[in-house]
């Protein structure tokens, strides 16, 4: 811990120095300020799922890296939009957790869904779904260009899934809490659990 604090100290010193040097360059200054130095410089922990170089697509079709989720706690699961039973339940569990955290004053948490079904869940399809389900601004429902990224993210979250026909997937019901560095802090599997219990894995 001590070493970490010293490292952070050095990093923040560098940031200050960096801003001082970049004073003349307004744009550069803004960029620097927008990216906390600790996030951009500190190497990922070995246990971080962000070591995975997966690429995802936002609802606007923008490509992002899994690693870009770094910087705040994340509550993550997988779903697909044509899913009739389990996925709405997973989302509702995550929303209950969101409410619970909100009550406790924890508001910096990112709620993330990744689609199993990148073929049918195109960015516009997901955008519509997100609006319909009234997911808050703390949410992102990502898709991907192919099955590759969902498959590898699933392996790290311990989620199993299988396409059973054109419409449906069999899949695990697992919600995972990641810390701001992408390390798994807690998981809950099964629709019979109380999602509020996951709040203990998120530090304010």
């Amino acid at each position: 811990m001590k070493v970490l604090k010293i490292m952070l100290g050095i990093l923040s010193f560098n940031l200050v120095a960096g801003i001082a040097l970049a004073k003349e360059d307004h744009h550069h200054h803004q960029e620097k300020a927008a990216t906390p130095a600790a996030e951009s410089v500190k190497p990922l922990k070995d246990e971080s799922i962000y070591n995975l170089k997966s690429e995802l697509l936002t609802v606007d079709g923008k490509k992002i890296s899994l690693e870009s989720l770094k910087g705040q706690p994340v509550v993550i699961s997988m779903a697909y939009t044509s899913c009739a039973y389990a996925c709405p339940l997973i989302i509702s569990h995550m929303q209950q957790l969101e409410k619970e955290l909100d009550k406790k004053g924890v508001r910096n948490v990112h709620f993330v869904l990744v689609s199993f079904d990148p073929k049918k869940d195109t960015p516009p399809v997901i955008k519509k779904y997100v609006e319909k389900r009234k997911l808050s601004k703390n949410w992102d429902f990502y898709t991907a260009e192919s099955d590759k990224s969902p498959r590898e993210i699933a392996t790290l979250l311990g989620i199993k899934y299988k396409k059973i026909d054109e419409m449906d997937y069999d899949h695990s019901f697992i919600i995972t809490v990641l810390d701001s560095e992408g390390v798994i802090k807690g998981q809950q599997s099964g629709a019979d659990k109380d999602p509020k219990e996951l709040a203990k894995f998120i530090k304010n």
Partner: peptide, 19 residues
């Protein structure tokens, strides 16, 4: 194989249990 994790054994949902 790529999709080794598509066989369910840990019954986490009703669908899993059926499989």
């Amino acid at each position: 194989v790529e999709d080794f994790n598509s066989s369910m054994v840990t019954g986490e949902s009703r669908a899993d249990a059926a499989l």
